[in-house]
């Protein structure tokens, strides 16, 4: 495997992209989970599917689209979906969560139409759905690198605002934090990461890489910084073990990465249960 990594460019692309996504997906995932927006990643990945399917369909009939990497249209539609979710959340102030199934269904609807028009699934499309080790090009890798720089810069510069908004939205508003602006930027970045991750993990499984490592991390961590570090470590472990398994077994990496993260989650849950740790357990002592 190691010698193959040095020999084949596609393997280098897949591993480097995977390692980067293993950091940025759980990094954003933590903020998504603590804000109880875990399904947003699912909705956006299905909108990305519509973009990918649309691009694959158009590449059959429009010359200009045959040269265009479908990832770009997938990303663009995910960004559009993220902005629409924000608009819908504003329109349904008392039922904000409604925005997610509406956008998710829209994504699946358009995806189904484009797949039918393109006369069914091509092997390309299966690669986008479940990820592929061999499909990551050097250009895809560069896109992942650029998006990772944007994500890390965003978290570096807006970490404290994101924490305040995630912990207590009303207090953040009273404090004068511009929650609306930060939320829109955050949603766009989530959409870009979903777009960047789909080559490796696949559209149908990308949201799991954002949520499962976080689900395991919040069982272990007491602090927010701790949860962030654990999420990244578990994300990286899942990607590395998943990619190695996918290479040796010649199967889709999306499945192996996600199943690895599920196994880690189960181990963590078992371990915390054995330790008798209850994360939300209230201390009985009152102040004197």
């Amino acid at each position: 495997m190691i010698s193959a990594l040095f020999t084949y460019e596609f393997l280098q692309n897949a591993f480097l992209s995977g390692l980067i996504i293993g950091v940025i997906a759980p990094l954003l995932g933590l903020f998504i989970v603590v804000r109880r927006l875990a399904l947003i990643a699912d909705a956006l990945s299905h909108v990305a599917l519509a973009g990918i399917a649309g691009s694959l369909f158009l590449s059959q009939s429009v010359l200009m689209f045959s040269a265009l990497n479908p990832v770009y249209l997938g990303m663009a539609s995910a960004v559009g979906g993220s902005l629409l979710i924000e608009r819908l959340r504003g329109a349904y102030k008392h039922f904000e969560e409604l925005a997610i199934p509406i956008i998710l269904s829209t994504g699946i609807g358009f995806g189904a139409i484009f797949i039918s028009l393109a006369k069914g699934f091509s092997s390309d499309l299966v690669g986008y759905l479940f990820g592929s080790v061999s499909a990551v090009s050097r250009q895809d890798l560069w896109v992942v690198v650029i998006i990772a720089v944007v994500v890390v810069a965003f978290i570096r510069f807006f970490y404290k605002e994101m924490f305040a908004l995630s912990f207590d939205k009303e207090y953040a508003k009273v404090s004068g934090i511009n929650g609306k602006f930060i939320q829109i930027i955050f949603m766009i970045i989530v959409a870009l990461v979903i777009g960047a991750s789909m080559r490796i993990v696949g559209i149908l499984l990308v949201s799991s890489l954002m949520t499962i490592p976080v689900a395991a991390a919040i069982q272990l961590a007491k602090s927010f910084k701790g949860a962030l570090i654990y999420s990244i470590v578990i994300g990286e472990l899942s990607v590395i073990i998943g990619l190695i398994a996918a290479f040796h077994l010649d199967i889709a990496p999306g499945g192996t990465i996600v199943i690895t993260s599920i196994i880690i989650l189960l181990l963590v849950l078992g371990w915390t249960k054995m330790k008798g740790k209850q994360p939300s357990k209230k201390a009985k002592e009152e102040f004197a």
């Binding site: 603590v34 404290k160 605002e161 924490f163 305040a164 912990f167 207590d168 404090s175 991390a217 701790g226």
Partner: peptide, 28 residues
Amino acid sequence: SFNSGFPATVVEVVKSGLTRKVGLFKSF
């Protein structure tokens, strides 16, 4: 009635009260 499962320490919560005072783009 905040989410009691939120992974944050007491000091992290208190520091968040300084967010606006510290200013944009800066860390604690």
